[in-house]
Amino acid sequence: MLDLNQDAKTSLGGAAKAMRDVFINGLCERMKKNKRIFFLSADFGSPALDRLREEYADRFINVGIAEQNMINISAGLALEGFDVYAYAITPFITMRDYEQVRLHLAISSQIRPVNVNLIGVGAGLSYDVAGPTHHGLEDLAIMRLLPNMAVFSPSDWRLVEKFIDFSIENKSPKYLRFDSKPLPEIYENPDEVDLKKGFHELIKGEKIALVSTGYMTQTALAAAKAEGDVGLIDVFMLKPLDEDALSETLKKYDCLITIEEGFIGNGGLDGLILNVLADRGHCAKVKRMGFKDKYVFDLGGRKYLHRLNGLDEEGIIKEISLWKQ
């Protein structure tokens, strides 16, 4: 548990790193000893990937701009016992190959182990000025929909670092939703975090709690710090997670504000929280923050776009104020 002063220090002063680079660098280290790791890319690169390509050329495959084939090949490798990482940007790795993911990862893994890890870079509006084709606002909901699929939506690179060994050891398909931009650390001591629990109460509050995932936990942290008495629950694993433990944490609060960089009302984080509450008969008031049922064509940078959609720090504080009234 972090105290408020520590939050301020880490959220504003912690080292900023790109999730993708942290993950791939860490994976490179594991690939030295673990000869069963393959890394596939649908012609997407990164500086960290340059190292992997050079050091492990025999286990790196650029399949070309062909996400469907990438998933099929990944599944074939995984069925033979390899641990596979498939990399593309968020909207393409979750939608272009959705049927391949459904058949060979979600359905197949119910019968045989299939350790394929989809690395989607570009969560939410990471690729802000690229426009709606490159935004990732549907992925949380559609990946959560698939049985047997884990959905990892980290808020900082510390969690990403911790997830590397988890992804190798747990032989099930997973979706890793990474931000494209370097983000500051939130978790100074990730050893305290239980990945299988799926969430962490970063700040204990009184009556109101923010429940956020991914990048929005960064913004929510600043808002909670500004308000002082508001709780903050970071849901970094939307599936699977310990719903009973989450329920126990949620029921301490009268009012909840879910915050996600995705479409709301369609099965993302908000759907998860509402289900957990409904299944256990809890009656907290819930405000859902995210993108409404429209694509984002506006330009001007991520922070600006968040402000337009009420998802900036001020927007969150405004919602907190409304609950307080």
Binding site: I61, Q68, N69, I71, N72, I73, S74, A75, G76, L77, A78, L79, E80, G81, F82, Q100, H104
Partner: peptide, 10 residues
């Protein structure tokens, strides 16, 4: 065929 490509590489 795509899955088979993965198996063949494996």
């Amino acid at each position: 065929l795509g899955v088979a490509c993965g198996v063949a590489i494996a």
